[in-house]
Design a protein around this nucleic acid. Sequence first.
DNA 1: TTCCGTTTTGGAACCGCTTTCATGTATGTT
DNA 2: AACATACATGAAAGCGGTTCCAAAACGGAA
Lengths: 343, 343
Amino acid sequence: MAGIKEVAELSGLSIATVSRALGGKGSVSAKSRKLAQDAAAELGFVLSYAASSLASGRNHNIGIVVPGVNRWFYSSVIDGAAAVLLEAGYDLTLYTTSQNESHRATILTDFLLRKRLDAVIAVSLELTEAEVSQLLAIHRPVLGIGGPLPGADSLRVNDFELAKRATDHLIGLGHTRIAHIGGDHEYDSDFKLPRTRRSGYQMAMEQAQLPTSEAWQRSSDFTVQGAYVTARALLGDGLMRPTAVFAASDEMAIGTILAARDFGLRVPEELSVIGIDGHELGEVFGLTTFDQKPREQGALAARRILARLEQSSEDAAVAYQPVAEEFPTELVVRRSTAVPAVE
Amino acid sequence: MAGIKEVAELSGLSIATVSRALGGKGSVSAKSRKLAQDAAAELGFVLSYAASSLASGRNHNIGIVVPGVNRWFYSSVIDGAAAVLLEAGYDLTLYTTSQNESHRATILTDFLLRKRLDAVIAVSLELTEAEVSQLLAIHRPVLGIGGPLPGADSLRVNDFELAKRATDHLIGLGHTRIAHIGGDHEYDSDFKLPRTRRSGYQMAMEQAQLPTSEAWQRSSDFTVQGAYVTARALLGDGLMRPTAVFAASDEMAIGTILAARDFGLRVPEELSVIGIDGHELGEVFGLTTFDQKPREQGALAARRILARLEQSSEDAAVAYQPVAEEFPTELVVRRSTAVPAVE
DNA sequence: TTCCGTTTTGGAACCGCTTTCATGTATGTT
DNA sequence: AACATACATGAAAGCGGTTCCAAAACGGAA
């Protein structure tokens, strides 16, 4: 396995110059650069990141911590971030916390501290204060998507606003019997998000002076299957059946639509459904939704974190000022919402 | 930032002993171990993987290369692998090739060669011979899932067999007009898999002496949306409508079911549908499928690769004998397949 | 041509661990 | 008690680069 030394010998340059030529750091004459690159190519040599990391402190490696990789929102965020990071020459190291609870602690205490990460993107993570300070203790840029991390950068949609506007959309169409299917701490450790969305729903209902019964506020996990079961329970109660459902995610909304079909309820004639996410399946189901473009969120997060890295290498003295950025969303109206049928 | 030196001083031990105590390698007395661990805990010290890697050559880091992270099969494989690797104390570095074609080359030529990976798991990658040899040139264990990598370990389901048995299932129920919706090179760079499954279908049909018209062999990409569009085209042709569809993936099968509903075709009374995958949504749709347990495939792949690593550290002399393992699948019969209605 | 400011270059000191080797110590044998 | 054996430990030499520093080469300007 050829090392930089062999490249130096072959090219007739010093190790230092070869390092600069291949690493693209200091100033190197065009001639030397070509010499070094040719020699490297001939030997099939690539700089070892392990050694570079140790010597320079820069790892070219960003960690991303997600609850799981299997939910559409998360995988989209990862996808977006991966594209940007790859482009920038960075590795992406993936940590999934939801495997089981103890893993989460391991990740936070061990893995992230091992100085192999230049920065961390944390997706939808609700951390205790101790955990946050642990994260920040690595003295590397940290950015939270979804869950805000006090003291770190964050990129988030305004969940409250979003939920309120989604509900308002239904209200604006003339619906008065509007149910909500959201998340619950029973199903998800990250409880803040579903609670916020629920509040938005409640606020919209309250402002419109519409009734919100317990029976119309259901919860499930954030999956199609979970919402499907919940929606069946909701819609099976024929007496006070809602004419519209605001689901806290598109996957939940799809589950609701599937449940509605089971009961022979036509969407949107007999039941309007609105979701949140911009799920790729939304189109097939004609789902009205607030698109929160997770892929773009991931890409933007990656860009922000890379900017941080550049900045911190420039003036390390500047105090770290956390930035909270709000990511815009967009209402996409499709066929799943309409004016309620007259009774 | 405390280093191992500070820990050594605080504990009164030598750097060497602290390294052994914390790294768990050489022999250390229980007393020294405790001393070292206590000191490390007090200083909030964790071994730097970057430095360890350089010194030991072991990175505790496995690369996984996937076409994308957004398709259920891939994310499930990743999920399974991540769980096992995390447990074993390994990092997982993610590479997605499908962002664009040039990235794929970059990954293969640059990223993977940077000696930060102990091994590589390649998922559904169809590589040229040059690319394979490039991969093997890093002299690290490589394991392919889905796409076989000549010269490397592989873990795969028998796609031909699987497709044949899926088709046979429909034939066994009495269907004679069986269509197939599969992939195509037009939609996917990894063409081998869809082609193999198509062959399995054709073989089953041939053996049963059933007709297979061009019109009944459609292709789309491997998504719900894609298959939905394709299935609409297939089913819209009322004249020679098939009574059953074998879809090359569950996502495609779901798209087919959705399309059938659009035409008012009841599943399975008027159309039987079978897929391949074991998708989590299969249950909601009552989908009959061959479960290939991708999550378990990922986990098993990780275990196999870890075993390779252990083995190669034991007797580095032993020649690398690639192992091709077949992963078993399981037919899950649900409500989407039935005896065809008498006409 | 001489002088000065830039750009290039090479030497060498690290970066923070692991591991070999030699030495010292505890354990077991006869 | 004497000796072989196994275990525990510290010193020091790397691992393969990066980067500081000082010296050398270069390119005008005076």
